[in-house]
Each structure stands twice: as structure tokens, then as C-alpha cells.
């Protein structure tokens, strides 16, 4: 087990591992997302208050979960990479960044599409929306920092330090935004507290979440393979692999 884990730290083994994993993750993601969409769009009943409009939640809520999960995932990889000097861990957080930023953007976009008919405004300075927006800035800062630094190893380590600082700050930011929001609460914003959710609505939500999880790891494997090929392009095994195909 430990040896296997150790081997994964090598770019070459990881590349093979990722290549074998990719089709499985992709098909699992497709199956679960399609099931979740079917359950969410056709099986789940309309909400008694929001009608069919609430169905965007089946994309919105799992994306929001993913956006936070991916940041923590990146931070854990950053810590692993910094402490044990494992290059693959850095590579994984680099590969995950754009996917995380995209999920954050999807969360914001679907949130405001939902907000237009429900709140009457595209954007409200609601605590959760604002936290997501700041999370998007944190993702963009990470991506910008990594692309600004020429030396790859330094870029990865600088990004890792930034991620760790960010993950310490996220709870602070979240709660300060929450308090700011509650003190500034205006009448137009109704808190979208989730009441005990019915199982017919919970099931598609969970399916979508699991599906997004598979989808994320599918994309992660694809992107990390691409990054490995780019980083190791001068190494022999990559050139041989290129020559064979």
C-alpha cells in the first residue's frame, strides 16, 4: 500500500495510473449526472413555493459544494507537496485550479439566474454569494500567481503557500461576511434556509453531487496527464511514448 502510494509520486507511474482511471471516472460521471438530471428534472415534484424554478438548485448546490471541496483539496495537496516535496501533489493542485474556478463561476452564474425571479435581482450581497465571489478571487489569484512566475518549481511552491494562507483565511472571511450580511440585512433578501428536504428532491441532489465529484476527478486526471506531458516533455519515456503512437 505504502509502496504503491510512493510510486504514485513518480510522474511516469502517475501518468499510467491516471490513464487507466480516466475512462472509468468519465463513464461513472456521465451515468450519475444523467441519472441525477433525470431525477431532478422529471421525477422530483415542483416546489410548492418556487414552482419549477428551484430545479436549478440541482446544478447550483453541488457546484457550490465542489467549489469549496476543490479549494480544500488543492490546499491539502499544497501541504503534502510542501512538506514531503512531492511534485505530483503540486501538479494536482495546479491541475485542479481551473476546474475549481469554473465550478465557482457556475455557482455564481446559476445563483444569480435563480435570484432574478426569486429575489427580483440578479445579484444580492447575500453572505453566501459574496463568499463564493471572494473564493473566485482566491482561485484567480492562485492561477495568476502561478502563471506569472517563470520557474515552475518556484511557481508551484509559491502557489502552495498562497493556498495555505487562503485556506486559513476562508473561515475568517466567511464568518465576517456572514456577520456583515446579517447586520446589513435588507427586506428584499429572504434567507434561503433549507428546510428538511424531501427525499424525492434529495436523491437527485446527491446523484448530481456524486456525479460532479466523478466529473471533477475525471477532469483532474485529464488535466494532470496533459501537465505531466508538458513538464516531462524532455524526458525519455514521454518521447518514446510519443514515438510509439
Amino acid at each position: 500500500m505504502f509502496l504503491w502510494f510512493h510510486r504514485l509520486g513518480s510522474a511516469r507511474y502517475f501518468f499510467d495510473f491516471a490513464r487507466r482511471l480516466t475512462p472509468w471516472l468519465g463513464s461513472l460521471a456521465a451515468v450519475t449526472v444523467i441519472t441525477g438530471l433525470y431525477l431532478g428534472l422529471f421525477v422530483a415534484p415542483p416546489d410548492y413555493q418556487q414552482g419549477d424554478g428551484y430545479r436549478i438548485m440541482f446544478v447550483h448546490v453541488p457546484s457550490a459544494w465542489m467549489s469549496m471541496f476543490i479549494y480544500v483539496f488543492m490546499a491539502v495537496n499544497a501541504a503534502v507537496g510542501l512538506i514531503w516535496r512531492i511534485k505530483i501533489a503540486h501538479l494536482l493542485s495546479t491541475a485542479a485550479a481551473i476546474v475549481g474556478a469554473s465550478f465557482t463561476f457556475i455557482t455564481l452564474a446559476t445563483g444569480s439566474i435563480w435570484g432574478k425571479p426569486m429575489w427580483g435581482a440578479w445579484w444580492a450581497w447575500d453572505a453566501r454569494l459574496t463568499s463564493e465571489l471572494i473564493l473566485l478571487f482566491l482561485y484567480l489569484g492562485f492561477i495568476a500567481l502561478q502563471s506569472a512566475i517563470q520557474d515552475r518549481s518556484k511557481a508551484q511552491q509559491a502557489g502552495a503557500i498562497l493556498l495555505l494562507a487562503g485556506v486559513v483565511n476562508i473561515p475568517i472571511i466567511h464568518y465576517s461576511v456572514l456577520w456583515w450580511h446579517t447586520l446589513h440585512q435588507t427586506a428584499s433578501i429572504t434567507k434561503f434556509g433549507m428546510p428538511s428536504i424531501h427525499s424525492s428532491m434529495l436523491a437527485p441532489l446527491l446523484f448530481m453531487w456524486v456525479g460532479f465529484m466523478f466529473f471533477f476527478f475525471y477532469l483532474l486526471m485529464l488535466r494532470s496527464r496533459a501537465l505531466i506531458l508538458e513538464y516531462e516533455r524532455s524526458s525519455r519515456w514521454v518521447q518514446e511514448a510519443g514515438a510509439v503512437k
Partner: peptide, 29 residues
């Protein structure tokens, strides 16, 4: 983090302004 970059003013703001938001919030409160 950006010490080796020559023109990093904007990047620096992007990195640090989100981290300053809590301070901003409580001061304005």
C-alpha cells in the same frame, strides 16, 4: 510571493485584497 516579478502591482492586489476583506468589513461595521 511576487518578489521576483518586475511589474507585480496588479497581481499583488489580486493576491492580498481578498485576504484583507475581513478587516475592511469590521472597520466599516
Amino acid at each position: 510571493l511576487v518578489v521576483t516579478q518586475r511589474k507585480a502591482g496588479i497581481l499583488l492586489s489580486l493576491l492580498t485584497l481578498p485576504l484583507c476583506i475581513p478587516v475592511l468589513i469590521f472597520s466599516v461595521l
